[in-house]
């Protein structure tokens, strides 16, 4: 039913969205925790910075990433010189693009979840001998379970839909960096509407799977995250 480039595009999309979510989750948890539980000067700046990818056109985000990760860029040159890795125009770049654009969504979902955890629960854990990290991993995170599930699925779904930033920083190379949305776009551009519709249908299926998974996971665990 799907041609080989289509399957490639689906796989690249899944890979990129997974990588973006895996990289983004710990980062988002850390940022959300800092935003909710700590107070320091410059917290407002962090808050604003986190939201940036949400308000910037993805193409602009992609372009900034291209500059930073490119072989001449500060991070890109470092990676190339030390490890011989080139990130731009690979599926990894697509994954990083997913990570950056979905980060604000994850942070917001996690902020709500972490601030919903009764701080006194954490204090109770501290008084029982748990240090800050143990308290966070054994009390805060499990109680923020629902928020984490939501954050992961929102990020993954956003990653699957990533278009603008990916196109700039990873390109639209069929079989290599062409993701599902890019493949749909290309098919429409070249007039292959039938193929585009098949991919659109598949996108619908993927989105439905995400939402159903979300629903099932949240229903399964009995406890409330207070």
């Amino acid at each position: 039913m799907f041609s080989s480039p289509d399957i490639q595009a689906i796989l690249v999309s899944l890979q990129a969205a997974s990588l973006g979510t895996i990289l983004g989750l710990p980062l988002a948890i850390g940022i959300a925790w800092v935003l909710v539980r700590s107070s320091f000067k410059g917290k407002a700046i962090l808050d604003i910075l986190v939201s940036f990818p949400l308000v910037l056109p993805p193409v602009v985000t992609g372009y900034i990433m291209l500059i930073v990760l490119g072989r001449q860029g500060p991070i890109g040159s470092l990676l190339y010189q030390t490890l011989g890795i080139n990130v731009v125009f690979t599926w990894v770049a697509a994954g990083l693009a997913c990570c950056i654009v979905s980060l604000p969504l994850m942070v917001r979902a996690l902020e709500v979840a972490i601030s919903g955890v009764d701080h006194k629960m954490e204090l109770a854990a501290r008084s029982l001998g748990a240090g800050p990290i143990k308290t966070f991993t054994s009390i805060t995170l499990p109680l923020a379970y629902r928020g984490i599930i939501s954050a992961v699925l929102i990020a993954f779904a956003r990653g699957l839909g990533e278009f603008g930033a990916t196109m700039i920083v990873a390109g639209n190379i069929p079989g290599k960096t062409q993701t599902l949305p890019l493949a749909i776009f290309t098919n429409l551009q070249t007039g292959d509407e039938a193929n585009a519709i098949r991919l659109v249908a598949f996108s619908l299926v993927l989105a439905s799977i995400s939402l159903i998974t979300h629903h099932i996971l949240l229903k399964r665990r009995g406890f409330r995250s207070q």
Binding site: K120, S127, G131, I139, L143, F223, R224, Q226
Partner: peptide
């Protein structure tokens, strides 16, 4: 000393059982 190092048991007004 941080609370976890003081070895003081504390029962809060609320019961605060860990629900998970």
């Amino acid at each position: 000393l941080s609370p976890d190092k003081r070895r003081i048991g504390y029962m809060f007004q609320e019961n605060l059982l860990f629900p998970h």
